[in-house]
Design a protein around this nucleic acid. Sequence first.
DNA 1: GAGCACTGC
Length: 755
Amino acid sequence: MSDMAGKRTSAESDESSRKKAKKGDSDGDVYNPYLAHMDPSPDSPFSGMTRRQVTAEQISKVEDLSANAFTGVEHTQKYFQILQTRRELPVHKQRQEFLDKYHSTQILVFVGETGSGKTTQIPQYVVFDELPNITGKLIACTQPRRVAAMSVAQRVADEMDVKLGEEVGYSIRFEDKTGPKTMLKYMTDGMLLREAMHDHDMSRYSCIILDEAHERTLATDILMALLKQIASRRSDLKIIIMSATLDAQKFQRYFNDAPLLAVPGRTHPVEIFYTPEPERDYVEAAIRTVLQIHASEPDGDILLFLTGEDEIEDACRKISLEAEELTREVDAGPLAVYPLYGSLPPQQQQRIFDKAPPALRKGGRVGRKCIISTNIAETSLTIDGIVYVVDPGFSKQKIYNPRIRVESLLVSPISKASAQQRAGRAGRTKPGKCFRLYTEKAFKKELIEQTYPEILRSNLANTVLELKKLGVEDLVHFDLMDPPAPETMMRALEELNYLACLDDDGELTTLGGLASEFPLDPALAVMLISSPEFYCSNEILSITSLLSVPQIWVRPANNRKRADEMKAHFSHPDGDHLTLLNAYHAFRGQGSDSNMLKQWCHEHFLSFRHLSSADNVRAQLKRIMETHSLDLLSTPFEDKNYYTNIRRALLAGFFMQVGMKESSGKVYRTVKDHQAVLIHPSTVLRAEFDWVLYNEFVLTSKQYIRTCTGIRPEWLLEIAPTYYDLEGFEDGEVKRSLQRAAEKKRRKEAMKAGR
DNA sequence: GAGCACTGC
């Protein structure tokens, strides 16, 4: 079915590309003497090739030379072996077709299913056509994830027989593996966006390839809109949008009816089964299905998709228990069950690649493994050997409520595209089966086609700041593929205005420009930039880093009490931010031997992984501060204001995230949105504070505020006088309380003056 | 008295 649809779209676009090609012939490819230097010299391996007119045959000739055309080094035997396998990839058959289309247009949409070879091959074809060794301009290929950028770059460096980091490199946060000779650069989409902030025309590149565009990450969506704009002012820039879905028409339409090329994939067929009736309890149904497969289906590993850590651990236990029973009672083979989710330590994540267990006795049935995973196995991790997929049809998805400015996670039905992706996981090594725990009717009628792009489900404060820095003047008319709700945009603009990153006309302020230099949310960036005024930028730098990595506290289900006791050692009575700082200082005080540090973290129930990454982040943020001459200061530890200064500095960024205790007792109310919230049970904060600032608002079984620090109301009036201008405040407990604080402050000042 | 799907700069 997918093949047919692919052919249909490809035929349709053939015509439009022919029209464009004709147009190009008449006004584009006229001989231009000023570009003569762009032609390779007669003694070069590329002689006879004209940039952007190269043929597949010419490329093959150069590839077959005994020496590498780019480096002059003799090719290894391995190179020719790889070359052979490359020429068997589906995409290779259409190399000339690709080049023809690429020559005919500025923007090309390329659809290649899994196994087509698009990510490794297309950028190489472009290299031979663009001749970056002569123009000096780079070719970029973006990926949504770091590991992909790194591993694909390595693979392509091998294929081109060059050293990684020289002709072929990659660029991701914390690591730039490119050099002066680099022609082809794999990078994360976020990294290209960062670069664009300082080079609005992306002038270093002659061709930009956006890979995995169907994933619709925030960065990809912004890049698409940006590139669409840039394309109209830079006629020499070419763009390729690569996607895995059949939703290519949407990309084509968005890019002014850009031509399309579709290449089939190379996967095995997957048979789909639906349940005849809707399932009431999907976890129970999933467990039952896994056990049925184990008892009655031929060899092959199983992949089950569930939504989160708890659900997965629970299902693992139940399946293991029941499988043992099956082994005893009906002589089924052994079943090894492995959980898989993002917060699992890497060592345990690795176990999913273990071989399935052997038969228990000679002649007995062979074992299989069953992996129970979150969405991480849908895109980020690929496991070979999976033959059976069990798909209950749910995943946790981020949603944003602009009214109360809260992002939360909600278990929701997946999209058709997601269901297809999941099923595809069963056909990587041989034909497979996918058991969908919903009816065929539900699949057809109830599931949406595509998961909503991230841009429709996020707080956009950060995005809006980035866009301003990218030189986008008119946000309302900025041509995004899926424009977000106006209310979400308004909320973002409002927040940035309160943070003084945008002025009242919506223009970027000096502070806003500086804030956008940091890879942080605007509130964190503003807090960091303001911290020298509070004589504690070193400490705020540490806290900011700790807040931008996952929780450093480890709390295993079987050892919660001990973990809480260890955390108490670091606790500071004034709040969680200071507690984080204490733990970090203790960590840094342990020396640099990484084995010792790991041991120390283990004993103290701290995450070595996350503390180390906080260290990495800190170093990066520190460099940015130094570049912009922001002072790194500390109040002497003996000074009685050491901790007070830090608490006040926190408010410089988080003055909008403040709650006041209601007179009734435990419940706090957020100051502007009037939401009733509880302080999260993980807090170290004692009850005596009437006012707290919080790092995040979490919406789970109840409304919680998490990572809280006690503050004094008069600080709000000093540090954020505009936001806390009482004139504009609604009457109520909050306003009366702030008025009393203002009164107290005036009396104090009067007394000081009178003395 | 409880949670953190997944990425990215």
